[in-house]
Design a protein around this nucleic acid. Structure first.
Ligand SMILES: [Zn+2]
Ligand SMILES: [Zn+2]
Ligand SMILES: [Zn+2]
Ligand SMILES: [Zn+2]
Lengths: 153, 153
DNA sequence: GCAGTCGCTGCTATGTTGTAACATCACTGA
DNA sequence: TCAGTGATGTTACAACATAGCAGCGACTGC
């Protein structure tokens, strides 16, 4: 069984446990994200479904499906890039906390990391001193991956 | 002289020193951002110029002007919100480093802060270990300001 | 002053991201 | 089988952003 198929299997299991439905279309969208090591935009996923499965899924549906997958914790939305990425921990049983992302500006490759929680709480403290409350600890950082770094130099 | 006028004066001075031109339109766009304590979108700035000066500036020009102002360090672009904000330090002579932003999701109010440089360098280190190089140290955090926090509760 | 140049702005069209409102389809359970 | 619910389709549109080319206007050098 391919890596992707295993992850999809795991995702289906996850939905069964939560009493939600992993439909065919949802599986297709998720498989697009899992297959790709890059973040994809909603419209890139439309193209993917068209090419891969010959199925035309309207934008509205893609967005609803992405919202569902995000709700289930299977997908993360990258607000900095307006793109979506499969969670890197679908197959871990431990529930992960709020993730941080390194996003390559060259090729959209994304690395999901978990930084030192002490740092996050220090950020939170700084925010509170300024009269703000952090609503999400999801940090997104504008990076270049080593590969793109090399070809740029 | 009003606060805003003082800041605009300072901005003009800044451009003179750098040999760039602070035109009327650029001044109008900048004044919109300086006047507002919130981040504004390009299209909100179009509306501002229309209402405040009776002048219809096309979107293309607004974007070009914003790019210019950002180049000059007078304006910051918030990628998380697709909005723009005047630099909080136009009147400081000390050049500021890369800023971080607290963005209220309720009312778009923005606070420009500078977090502990040690934290940034720790982030950088985490990124490098993951094979990425941080291209911008501009962090943008999704927050609620105290005011919106209060009215939400 | 005047021509040439370069930077700024206008215009039109188009691309990209995302949502509202309402209709329809499909699975589930009585 | 039939109602109810959740998933998907359709159409239209809003908001954000850029391409490409034309015109205008302010400096430069003569
Ligand atoms: Zn994850
Ligand atoms: Zn890359
Ligand atoms: Zn600033
Ligand atoms: Zn607020």
């Amino acid at each position: 069984m391919s890596q992707t198929a295993g992850i999809l299997e795991q995702a289906e299991q996850h939905c069964r446990e939560r009493g939600s439905r992993m439909t065919e279309k949802r599986k297709r969208v998720l498989s697009g994200l899992v297959d790709s090591d890059k973040a994809l935009s909603a419209y890139e996923l439309i193209d993917y479904c068209k090419e891969q499965f010959g199925e035309n899924i309207p934008a509205m549906s893609i967005y609803r499906i992405l919202a569902f997958l995000e709700e289930e914790g299977l997908v993360h939305k990258l607000n900095l890039a307006n793109k979506y990425v499969a969670c890197a921990h679908i197959c871990c049983d431990h529930s992960h906390g709020v993730p941080q992302f390194l996003i390559c500006g060259g090729c959209s490759k994304v690395k999901e990391i978990t930084v030192n929680p002490a740092m996050i709480s220090e950020l939170k403290k700084s925010a509170e001193q300024a009269g703000f409350t952090m609503m999400s600890q999801q940090l997104e950082m504008d990076c270049l991956c080593d590969e793109c770094m090399g070809s740029a130099a």
